[in-house]
Simulated scan of single mutants.
Amino acid sequence: MRPTLAVTLVLASAVLLVPGAPAWACATCACGDPTLTSMGTEQPFSGRLRLSTTLRAWGHTVGEDNVNAQRLREARMDVAAAYAPLPWLFLAATLPLQAREVRDVSLARERGWGVGDLEVSAKAFLFQDKAFSADHLFSVLAGVKLPTSPVLHAKDGTELGLDAQLGSGSVDPLFGVAYQHFRGEWSFVASATGFLPTRGIQGFRAGASVRTTLAAQYQPSARWAVRLGLDGRFEKAADINGEKEEDGGGVIGYASPDFLFSPATDVVLSAGVRVPFFNQLHGRVSPTPIAMMSAAYDL
């Protein structure tokens, strides 16, 4: 990763963790639920503002070793904000900062870094059994990924390959549903989100996909919790100008353990890993585990 990007990531993380103006009440007091939550699974209340940053490191290898293998590695930081203007509505935006390296079997490399594609969404809570300290929540999600990442070029002016680009150059709608249940020291979440990509740069169009999560969390203390999830992705193969790609598309499942810790009121830190245990992607696609760390702060 280049020094400039590293400095950017550190400064952005620091900004998100600087306390803001005093709030009228802590998030736990306002929603009546002490459950430690990662970004996107919090209980709603009017005026809630949550900032977060999430670091991810991941990669995959496509193709056959010593023949046509191409290795992708990425370090990514998502800077996100979510605001509830109404007790039943969350508006959210996520902007990724990314650094990528692609190496093929000849050891030739392409590197790209910068701002990725912005994602904006709205989550509406259609049902909750109680206005305060709800035990059951049902929500729907609608959003779009926007082509905010610039097209990257090599020093000679030629465009980098698709895998080295940080964005798709397409406008991609997304829709989802989620159910959450809170029961004493335990909480549970089940969700599914569908993505309908459009065609973008270099004639590329990602396949339509559905991403699912089923997770349980145990919190014996106000300060820490453990979470175990199963994440799945079902997707059609991508195509370039209508020609279907041979590698990719299919089904993959991840086991997702996390540890959550709250060092201070309204601050939640988490660390975890997404381990691929079921890989039925078409062709030769070998994903690495995904390492994750995040920090969230409620104003």
Rank of each mutant, 00 (worst) to 15 (best):
L9G: 08
L9Q: 15
L9S: 09
A12Q: 14
A12G: 14
S13C: 02
A14Y: 12
V15K: 06
P19T: 15
A21M: 07
A23S: 12
C26I: 03
C29E: 15
A30D: 13
P44V: 00
T54C: 00
R56A: 09
R56S: 12
H60L: 06
H60Q: 15
E64A: 01
E64K: 04
D65I: 00
R71I: 03
L72F: 09
E74L: 00
R76N: 12
A80D: 08
A81Y: 09
A82N: 07
A84R: 07
P85G: 04
L86D: 12
L86V: 11
F90R: 10
A93G: 11
P96L: 05
P96I: 12
Q98T: 14
R100S: 09
R100D: 12
D104H: 00
D104A: 00
S106N: 11
S106M: 02
E110V: 02
V115N: 08
V115D: 11
D117F: 01
A122Q: 07
A124W: 03
A124G: 08
L126P: 00
F127L: 08
D129L: 00
D135A: 01
H136W: 13
H136P: 01
H136C: 00
F138K: 04
A142R: 05
A142W: 06
V151A: 08
E159I: 02
G161M: 12
A164C: 07
G167K: 07
S168C: 00
S170V: 06
D172F: 03
L174N: 13
L174M: 09
V177L: 04
Y179R: 11
R183C: 02
R183D: 15
G184N: 09
W186Y: 12
W186M: 05
A190N: 11
T198L: 04
R199E: 14
G203V: 04
G203A: 00
R205I: 01
V210H: 08
T212R: 05
A216K: 06
Q219Y: 13
S221M: 03
W224C: 01
V226D: 10
V226H: 06
G229W: 10
L230P: 03
A237R: 12
A238I: 06
I240F: 06
I240A: 06
I240Y: 10
N241F: 00
N241T: 05
G242E: 10
I252E: 14
A255P: 02
A255Y: 13
P257Q: 06
D258W: 04
F261E: 13
S262I: 03
S270R: 08
A271H: 03
R274Y: 03
F278Q: 08
F278R: 06
R284Q: 10
T288V: 02
I290C: 00
I290Y: 06
A291W: 15
M293C: 07
A296E: 15
Y297W: 14
